[in-house]
Amino acid sequence: MIGDVFTWLTDWSHWTDTRFDTGIITQLLAHIRFCAMALAIAMVIALPLGLFIGHTNRGRWLVGAANALRALPTVGVLVLLTVIISPQFQGRTDTGFLIPTVIVLVLLAVPPILANTFAGVQNVDPGVRDAASGMGMTGPQVLFRVELPISLPLIFSGVRSAALQLIATATVASYLPLGGLGRFIYDGLAQQDYPQMIGGGVLVAALALLTDLVLSTVQRYVVSRGITGRYSTKQVGAPDPRLAVVTEAEGARA
């Protein structure tokens, strides 16, 4: 079986589009497109909101409310929204499926980013915040020069967690007649073409691992060494910043 999967994956004809089938490359790009779109929208919503709530300590209930969203079954919401929305978009376009998918993905990505951004700002040492305003920083200066850079590890872990959940859930979007890597899983299942199905699983896993690698590399360059504790190249075993939040902020995944 593993050999068959390998054969399926290394067959170049599966990677490119043919008259009958959409290839891996196209589906991969579609998958990345959904996820990137949803992640961008979620960040535009959750980052400013989390920073604002953390900085002013107003509207904390929003964080709790967003967290409660995690109890929703993603597939169920996806199907519900599709049933509601897709009839509005008749015709041959994907829009009727794309919109509910993106909404579900955004709903999924907002809670971890919001919760972690909020927690990051809240967890800033009160002495540091005190010193910052005591030296004459204005509110926005305290937020952007002190609280934000110090919160970055938590914010990154929220974004990474969100990205992983998006990649996973975008797979389920293929359950609707929509592109993405999940196509291979659901088509393989329907056609009892198990090498294709498992090959699709391998591709999704690879995309998730690669995305996390890319994001963690970005994080390494963006977060100050004073916070990560990576002072010298000799230092090993610096704690994974995701450690601190796994219990508080890790979310439901599809």
């Binding site: 079986m1 999967v5 389920v172 999940g182 699709g200 699983g201 896993a205 998730a208 995944r253």
Partner: peptide, 13 residues
């Protein structure tokens, strides 16, 4: 990090 649905289909092989 591995998505759940991928793990479902990867476990049997």
């Amino acid at each position: 990090t591995i998505p759940s649905i991928a793990l479902f289909v990867l476990v049997p092989p």
